[in-house]
Amino acid sequence: FDIYVVTADYLPLGAEQDAITLREGQYVEVLDAAHPLRWLVRTKPTKSSPSRQGWVSPAYLDRRL
């Protein structure tokens, strides 16, 4: 999967189903980028939180090589 970094805090609107909150600087794996406005991502697990999966706007993501 492609690795992206979150460029700004992402707080989903209440109406968005299956969306997750992301923090600036967080790394995520993009699982599904087929839709231009919503990408399915999975967060990297940390010592304090397990990995999470949900939909985010790709405008908040920047690809890492």
Rank of each mutant, 00 (worst) to 15 (best):
L40C: 04
L11G: 08
V41I: 09
D2V: 11
R23W: 13
V6T: 04
L61E: 01
T7F: 04
Y10V: 10
A8W: 05
A19C: 07
G25W: 02
W39A: 00
L13Y: 10
Y4P: 00
W55M: 04
S48A: 11
E29D: 07
I3C: 08
D9S: 06
R38S: 07
A15D: 15
P36Q: 07
V28A: 01
K47G: 12
I3N: 04
Y10T: 06
P50L: 07
A59W: 08
S51W: 07
D32G: 02
R64A: 15
Y4H: 03
Q17T: 13
S57H: 12
F1Q: 08
I20R: 02
I20Q: 03
D62Y: 09
G25C: 03
F1T: 09
K47S: 13
E16Y: 08
R64Y: 15
S51F: 06
G14F: 12
R52Q: 14
L65C: 09
D62F: 08
G25E: 01
K44C: 12
V6R: 00
T43E: 03
P12L: 08
V6A: 07
L31P: 00
I3Y: 10
P50T: 07
L65E: 15
Y4Q: 01
R63M: 12
Q26V: 07
L37H: 14
P36T: 06
P58L: 02
D2F: 14
S48N: 14
Q26W: 10
D2I: 11
R64F: 15
V30L: 09
P58I: 04
P36N: 06
L31N: 00
W55N: 02
L40R: 03
W55E: 01
V5E: 05
V56G: 01
I20N: 02
Q53S: 10
D32A: 05
A8T: 10
V5C: 05
V6L: 04
E16H: 09
Y10D: 02
W39Q: 00
L13V: 12
Q17S: 12
R38D: 02
V41M: 00
A8C: 07
L31A: 01
L37C: 09
E24C: 09
R42N: 03
D9T: 06
H35L: 08
R63E: 08
R42M: 06
A15T: 15
F1I: 09
G14P: 15
T46S: 11
L37W: 10
D62V: 14
S51T: 09
Y10W: 10
K44T: 13
V56I: 10
V6N: 00
F1E: 07
Q53G: 03
Q17L: 13
V5Y: 12
Q53W: 07
L22R: 00
P12E: 07
W55S: 02
S49I: 11
W39R: 00
L13F: 11
E16F: 08
D62R: 13
Q26C: 05
I20L: 12
S57Q: 05
L22A: 01
Y27F: 13
G14K: 11
T7A: 06
T46R: 05
V28H: 00
P50C: 05
Y60R: 02
A33I: 06
R63Q: 11
A8S: 11
V28K: 00
D2C: 07
L13P: 13
L65I: 14
D9H: 06
L40F: 10
R42F: 03
E24S: 12
S48K: 09
L13H: 13
K44M: 15
R64L: 15
A33T: 10
V41G: 00
S48W: 13
R52M: 13
S57Y: 04
D9Q: 05
W39M: 01
V30G: 00
T46I: 06
A19R: 08
A33L: 05
R38F: 08
D62T: 14
Q26D: 15
A33C: 14
Y4T: 02
V41T: 01
V41Y: 01
T21E: 14
R38P: 00
Y60L: 07
R64I: 15
L61D: 01
R42I: 05
A34N: 13
V30P: 00
V41C: 03
L22E: 00
Q17G: 10
P45L: 04
Y60D: 03
A8P: 03
E24G: 07
R23N: 09
E16S: 10
L65Q: 14
P58G: 02
L11N: 14
R63Y: 13
I20H: 03
S51Q: 09
G14W: 12
V56Y: 01
S49L: 11
K44S: 09
R23D: 06
L61Q: 00
D18G: 14
R64Q: 14
D2T: 10
V5K: 07
A15H: 15
K47F: 10
F1C: 08
A33P: 07
V5N: 02
V6C: 07
K47D: 15
L22C: 02
L11K: 12
P12M: 04
K44F: 15
A19K: 07
G54D: 02
V56Q: 01
Q17Y: 12
D32M: 06
L65V: 14
K47P: 13
A15F: 13
P36H: 06
Y4K: 01
W55C: 04
L65N: 13
R52D: 06
L40G: 00
P12A: 09
P12F: 06
T43F: 05
S51A: 11
R63H: 13
D18T: 06
T43D: 02
S48P: 04
Y60M: 05
V28P: 00
W39D: 01
R52P: 02
Y10M: 04
E24M: 14
D2E: 13
Y27W: 13
Q53D: 05
L13M: 13
R64D: 14
L61S: 01
L65A: 13
I20K: 02
R42S: 04
D62I: 12
P12Y: 07
H35Q: 09
L40I: 02
T46Q: 07
Q53M: 14
D2M: 12
L37M: 11
Y27E: 14
R64E: 13
Y27N: 04
G25A: 02
G14C: 09
G54I: 10
S57G: 04
T7W: 05
Y10S: 03
A8M: 14
D18Y: 09
L37G: 12
P50F: 05
V56W: 01
D62W: 07
Y60H: 09
P50S: 06
K47E: 14
D2S: 10
I20V: 07
D18A: 06
T21G: 09
L13G: 13
L11D: 12
K44N: 08
L40H: 04
P50A: 08
E29V: 10
D9R: 05
D62S: 14
Y4G: 01
L40A: 01
Q26T: 12
R52Y: 11
A19Y: 13
K47Y: 11
L22Q: 01
Y10N: 04
A59C: 07
A15G: 15
D2A: 14
V28C: 03
A34C: 08
P36M: 05
S57K: 05
S48V: 11
P12Q: 06
T21F: 14
L40P: 01
A8F: 08
D62N: 09
